[in-house]
């Protein structure tokens, strides 16, 4: 108690280092490196890369081996009835480029959100449970910048995951059906460049959609110290949304539910592409992003070390 005043005058105030700010890019690099060093991240990414291959080979075997077309469910079954086996893959045999988009759409329902939720859970709740978040909170990094770095990490995961799915799907599709079968759903042949920009739009859109989920996940992550709660919360929310979407009496609620945007991704296989649905979906995702981020920010700025 008495030693402290004795020590302090020894350091002249002018010699105190100026308030340092760690450069943002260094924080980002450290965060990304940290994420991709986790074995679970790598395992999930590997799984995501393999799934389009499995789907492609399975559909190829079913269509070419048995000769019978995949049953697409009873006729007259309205939209929303096809969540089980998307008939979109039936078109795949004709077009290599349906596989990457179809895989992306299917995986966007649960698997990709799971990946993002996992990353978000690790980002705040996970670090808190290990006690490593404390270091961040005490470091010369403002809370806003901390959230920025953490969101950027989640964004990288979302981008890599959806890019991986599309790339793996595209390669599989090209290997299985060749380059000359790039046909849109409207029956027009597409050039390779055409296909690539459509896939680019798909990846960008999927990343934004996943970032909306990631923002909500980060908000949950900021409130808890159990990463499991984040994953369960996000998946539970998505499953509840999908169930609500099946209930036609709740029509008025559907525009509020994030997964209602997913079907608009099919528009990218149509020719000419209509961007209305995608724009609406992106807007919806933007709303979720704002809600999630503001909640996460509110919590993280008031968090005690």
């Amino acid at each position: 108690m008495t030693a402290l005043p004795d020590v302090l005058p020894d350091v002249p105030p002018a010699e105190l280092p100026a308030r340092r700010r760690a450069p943002l890019w260094r924080l980002l690099r450290a965060e990304v490196r940290w994420i991709f060093r986790r074995p679970r991240t790598l395992v999930v990414l590997a799984l995501l890369a393999v799934l389009p291959v499995i789907t492609g080979v399975a559909v190829d075997l079913t269509l070419n081996g048995g000769g019978a077309p995949v049953d697409t469910g009873p006729p007259g079954a309205g939209p929303g009835a096809s969540d089980g086996g998307p008939p979109i893959f039936v078109t795949m045999a004709a077009s290599a480029f349906v596989l990457p988009l179809g895989s992306l759409m299917t995986l966007l329902m649960l698997m990709l959100p799971l990946t993002v939720a996992m990353a978000s859970g690790d980002a705040l709740a996970g670090e808190q449970s290990h006690g490593t978040l404390r270091g961040w909170l005490l470091a010369p990094v403002s809370r806003g910048r901390l959230l920025l770095v953490k969101s950027a990490g989640v964004l990288v995961v979302a981008l890599v995951a959806s890019g991986l799915v599309v790339a793996s799907g595209m390669v599989t599709g090209l290997v299985l059906t060749g380059t000359d079968g790039l046909v849109s759903m409207s029956g027009t042949e597409l050039s390779m460049g055409d296909v690539l920009w459509r896939l680019g739009v798909a990846v960008a859109w999927a990343t934004f959609y996943l970032m909306a989920i990631g923002a909500v996940a980060l908000a949950i992550s900021a409130f808890t110290e159990h990463p499991m709660v984040v994953v369960v919360g996000v998946l539970g929310g998505l499953i509840v949304s999908v169930v609500l979407m099946q209930i036609s009496a709740l029509d008025w609620l559907h525009p509020y539910l994030l997964p209602s945007s997913l079907t608009s991704m099919v528009d990218l296989i149509r020719d000419p592409v209509s961007f209305d649905g995608l724009a609406e979906g992106a807007f919806r995702a933007g709303c979720y992003l704002v809600i999630g981020m503001s909640l996460a920010y509110a919590r993280i700025t008031t968090k005690d070390g």
Binding site: Y256, R284, G286, C287, V290, I291, S294, A298
Partner: peptide, 14 residues
């Protein structure tokens, strides 16, 4: 921050 973010988000959805 939380209040305005939630308001803006829900207003956008509506």
């Amino acid at each position: 921050a939380a209040g305005s973010g939630i308001t803006v988000g829900i207003a956008g959805l509506a």
